[in-house]
Simulated scan of single mutants.
Amino acid sequence: MLEKILTMKLLNEKFAVCRLNKNELIADWVKNSDFYSITKTSDELSIVCSQDSIASNIKCEKDWRILKVEGPLDFSLIGIILALKKISIFAVSTYDTDYILVKNKDINNAILALSNERYEVINQENMV
């Protein structure tokens, strides 16, 4: 039997990717999520967090699921590619690991594609 390349864990919640004005302050609703990521550039402020936390007036793309790569990862590792299966992703990286956001409608195909490439996917819900 072939060894698994990496283990990934499907997080339970649904998430959203939000776009705010580059000069906006970080609102308290962001911090209501167990997972959130904030990126500020000279053009915008992007926030990934639980979609249940988001204020109604915020521009966002909802219905993302997160596959957490069980780390820590070595910086020399090459990224996971789902593009060959035409599955869009939004990636968030931390010092220790990567989080791959996949639209909920594509999560079953993503898990199948990863499993076929010897990635282990742990589903906390035991169903998707």
Rank of each mutant, 00 (worst) to 15 (best):
D52H: 12
G79T: 08
S53L: 08
Q124M: 10
I89F: 07
T41S: 15
S88M: 06
Y95N: 08
S115L: 04
M8Y: 03
L112V: 01
K4T: 04
A91Q: 14
A113P: 01
K105A: 14
E70P: 00
Y36R: 02
N116V: 01
S56K: 13
S88E: 14
N126M: 10
D63F: 11
K40Q: 15
Y95A: 11
A113F: 08
E61H: 09
G71D: 15
N126P: 00
E117I: 01
N123D: 15
D34A: 12
F75L: 05
T39I: 09
A27L: 04
L101Q: 12
F15M: 12
C49D: 13
E120P: 00
L73I: 11
F15W: 12
L82M: 04
C49R: 05
F15R: 02
T94C: 06
M8H: 02
D96Q: 12
K62S: 15
F90K: 11
I38G: 03
I78E: 11
F35P: 02
T41D: 07
L73M: 14
K22E: 11
Y119S: 06
N23S: 14
K22N: 06
A16T: 07
G71H: 09
R118H: 12
V128H: 01
L20V: 00
L20N: 02
G71A: 13
A55I: 02
V92Q: 13
L101R: 07
L20P: 00
L2P: 04
A55P: 00
N32Y: 14
L6V: 01
L45P: 01
R65L: 09
K40Y: 09
A110L: 03
I89D: 09
P72I: 13
F75K: 05
D106V: 00
V69Y: 02
P72G: 15
E125C: 05
F90C: 14
T41N: 09
V121R: 04
N21K: 11
I89T: 15
D34Y: 05
C18I: 03
I26D: 12
I66D: 08
A16F: 03
E70N: 10
T94P: 00
C18S: 14
S33N: 09
I54C: 10
S115C: 06
V69T: 05
S50W: 10
T39H: 10
I107W: 03
R19E: 13
K68P: 01
S33I: 06
E13Q: 13
Y119E: 09
G71N: 13
Y95F: 13
C18N: 11
S93G: 11
E120I: 03
T97S: 14
R118W: 14
N126T: 10
Q51N: 13
K105C: 10
N126S: 13
I87N: 08
I107Q: 04
D106H: 08
D63N: 15
G71W: 13
N21M: 04
E125W: 02
A55F: 06
I87Q: 08
R118C: 09
S93Q: 13
I5A: 10
N108G: 03
K103N: 08
P72N: 15
M8K: 02
F35H: 09
E3C: 03
I81R: 05
N126L: 12
Y119C: 07
E24I: 00
L25P: 00
T41A: 11
D28F: 03
I66R: 03
D63T: 03
I54G: 07
L10Y: 01
E125Q: 12
I122M: 10
